[in-house]
Design a binder for these strands. Structure first.
Lengths: 341, 341
DNA sequence: ATTTTGTGTTAAAACGGTTTAGTATTACAT
DNA sequence: ATGTAATACTAAACCGTTTTAACACAAAAT
């Protein structure tokens, strides 16, 4: 009870009266290369179209050792940033004749590891990974095993992999400067417990901008424990800390959203009581009252670049040089971060 | 420059000193069935584990004619309802040893058609489809070609396919009754131009509930042209119609979100000026001020059911009977639909 | 003693493509 | 006439797995 049997090379070969080898050559556009006659070429192409021939991907894959399948592991597909990223990656891959299979790690290294295994089993040619906390070893292992791989959004400085990521320090530096320009001085930064470079860079950008402004003493970084964002924020904000702050920067999409839940619950007025700056956008930000400012990442570019460098490496014979690509973001300014009157 | 070469049956066979046929039988758990000796079985299993053998999926697929790949086409993966659905489907499929590849049709039949082709090319064993407008013919074609297929969220009454969907009429009847119970009488229903059953059923549920309440004359269904939701809503609402209404039911997730943009722009107070009821939930609904009530669909159940019926059909020899599964939803009530004081 | 039955194993074919080495045929140069 | 080269094509191997038919060898039945 599956799909109807498909047209094979042999069917075309028989119909035209040539060998299936010839048909294969013609349909792979290697007619000239192999010195196939014009007439044969024409007939084969015509018959293939007539019968609507579709190559059997498994036979091809088995022979060539390549599947034209890419694996993608994101942190969480229900996060709009990753959803968009996945979509762009899919689109770009499809343009180059590749199909993408994906999964979410939920920021758990065990999930990541399991997923990578599943993907490898499916015979993917290469993987695009958003690595999660504590996955450095795993990634290093794969790197040593010569997996074709590109890291996105985050990377490990010690492991020499292809990577595409944001200039995170600059982004947060710009956010901080913007808030400073709106005459906020006591600016807090909401982060989570993480060794991952993208996060430490974001923190660094904030700190540097504060230092530049001579506000070294006002630096205030809140590191939330994983999986307890709302709980911890509620406690911290409820107690007193929020009274000492004029603005808060949330350093990723889900932190922002969780933060908004808490601020809403505490009836904090934005930006009167507290200015807010978030990450990655989405309908939530635009529809919130007031609309929330955010860092817009070049998601499309990020996805396309990842696909391009990965496939280029896959298709090149000689091991290409390993590069890190760093992209720039911009700020979408809304009411939540404007000067209070 | 791809993955390192993997361990094959032959490697194990050589290491143990038996034929690869025997190894295949043992590793497929058919040792007893084929009367393989105990010792050989033990040795093979041990060696397979030692070498971390992973079967080559393409060789297996080529031989068996089955890929253990499922195709999934949703309307729009960036819609949280479909994102969650996709995730549940993936999870359920993975539990049964299948992998899912997916794409978004963007409600365009040409996209749908193209995607189905891509999926078929990838050799999927079966497909799970959220059919879009004007795709009835395409689906009917595939049905005639004996594609293993299950429709989700929507279906065509005239085509006898497996399907899993919501009791949409009942859902909207309940929404309408709820609003009536909150003493709203002039209730409008926002829909879009569509022949798809899920939408006509939603309209029907609303109409029936209004009739039940003796409010036949207050029935007010707004059908928006596709791709122009916001534009049209803005025009309609701006003019005058909204003044005659006390409540609005939005009949899917994106209509709700687009509607909120417009209502926000027009500074309509919810629920004082207008009560609002939406579909499918998400952070936007919970964080909106005030929180938006919505119909919660049993997404997980829907995904699991779709996977189950599809795989069951794939794996059964005899053509199973075609069934339609209809699931129930519940209402999440928030401030947006409560009685005005 | 010979056939039958059963047990444990293997050789070989098949899946559908790609690629290499080889074969025929004609054309050209020696 | 003979060797060389170019042209147009094909046979066959190969990828890794599954499955069928076959094959030894022993024990039991005739």
């Amino acid at each position: 009870m599956a799909f109807k049997k498909k047209v094979s090379l042999k069917d075309i070969a028989q119909a035209v009266g040539v060998s299936s080898a010839l048909v294969s050559m013609v349909l792979n556009g290697k007619a000239k290369q192999y010195g196939i006659g014009e007439e044969a070429t024409r007939k084969v192409l015509a018959k293939a179209k007539e019968l609507n021939y579709q190559p059997n991907i498994m036979a091809r894959g088995l022979r060539s050792g390549r599947s034209r399948l890419l694996g993608l592991v994101v942190a969480d597909i229900s996060n709009p940033f990753f959803a968009t990223l996945a979509r762009e990656i899919e689109r770009a891959a499809s343009e180059r004749g590749y199909t993408v299979i994906y999964g979410s790690s939920d920021e758990k290294p065990e999930h990541l590891s399991k997923l990578m295994n599943t993907l490898a089993n499916q015979g993917v040619d290469g993987i695009i990974v958003v690595p999660c906390e504590n996955s450095e070893e795993l990634i290093a292992d794969l790197y040593l095993q010569k997996y074709a791989m590109v890291l996105v959004d985050r990377y490990f400085p010690k492991i020499n992999t292809l990577s595409v990521s944001l200039d995170n320090a600059e982004a947060c530096k710009n956010v901080t400067r913007h808030l400073l320009s709106q005459s906020y001085k006591k600016i807090g930064f909401v982060s989570y417990e993480s060794e991952l470079l993208h996060m430490t860079e974001r923190v660094r950008g904030y700190c540097e901008a504060m230092q530049e402004a001579g506000l070294k003493n006002s630096i205030n970084v809140l590191k939330l424990p994983q999986d307890k964002y709302q709980e911890t924020m509620l406690q911290v904000f409820e107690q007193h800390q929020i009274k000492n702050l004029e603005a808060l920067i949330f350093s990723n999409n889900s932190l922002t959203i969780q933060g908004l839940y808490v601020l809403k619950q505490l009836k904090v007025r934005i930006p009167e009581d507290l200015a807010v700056f978030g990450f990655d956008g989405g309908d939530v930000f635009d529809l919130y009252c007031p609309a929330i400012s955010y860092v817009r990442q070049p998601v499309e570019e990020m996805g396309r670049k990842a696909v391009t460098v990965l496939i280029d490496q896959l298709e090149s014979e000689k091991p290409e040089e390993i590069k890190r690509y760093v992209l720039k973001s911009d700020l979408v300014i809304a009411e939540s971060s404007l000067k209070k009157k």
